[in-house]
Amino acid sequence: MDPLLYVLDLIVFIGIFGIVALSLNLEFGFAGLANFGKVAFFLIGAYTYALLSQIGVPFYLCLVAGGLVSAIFGLLVSLPALRLRADYLAIAVLAFGEILRLIVKSEEFAGGDWGITVSPAISLVGASHRVDALVNIGLVYFCLLICFIVVQLLANSPYGRAMRAIREDEVAAEALGKSEVKYKAQALMLGSAMAGVAGGLYAQYLQYVLPGMFMPMVTFTVWIMVLLGGPANNWGVLLGAALVQIFNRGTNILKDYFILPINPTDLQYILFGALIILVLLYRPQGLLKESRIKTKAMEGVRRARNAVKNKGSQ
């Protein structure tokens, strides 16, 4: 295979999963929600895109619709689910994702086991694969940039501060006026919207959707990205997404050059599993630690300190 194309392909994947990782970071890293059904919202975005593009809706509307439909589902799921304990929530949304996969697998309108073919978002006449990949990079990283800006703005605001407070101690946060349900529902809604957009990008890039693309495994790959890179650090989870994708490719390339006694896919997931356990044991904060909340509050602190100093020197 063309090595440059291979790299470009890798970059696209990092971008798409970077968006999903940012969305899980919003939910888990900041709001403390154990979303074990991330793939459900990825699926919703992908299938919405596929179904709409089939009837000729332009790609940007497909993407937006994927995000919206996914957000609506996020909100609907959150209404009953948010009152649940962390473990119950995790199991419930995991089951929700599996039900969705069963539906698209069984229903004709979603193409059943054979899925749906999807036309690419932007197809230039006579363009090479390389150019196609570059166009995709442009599209994916544009979406990634928007998502990144949004989550960074939230992380560095009183709103993000409240979210982190709920993650730390929901009773104390409630007693300080932060409605747990409101913040968590919004986190799930926004996170689902982002995952939905990523799903749409994924569908148009691969040019098909299949039930098999949305196994629970996808959810846990994203969890690895977040936990490895650093929960509550948006740069960290992007780093995590890149590392996991590179590692993923690495084990596959390895097999072309070495005779492994073990299937590279098996090896890859064994190593992922071991890696995550090691991270949880020895570096639970991930590679990059939680980012500080950057607002103008620091200016207030500086002023207060200067005032004290001036008093002292008088």
Binding site: F28, G32, A34, F36, A86, D87, A90, F220, W223, I224, L227, Y269, I270, F272, G273, A274, I276, I277, L280, P284
Partner: peptide, 15 residues
Amino acid sequence: TIIHLMVASIALGFI
């Protein structure tokens, strides 16, 4: 946390 334990059990499942 319980979330970490759940993720660890999934990681163990992978292995």
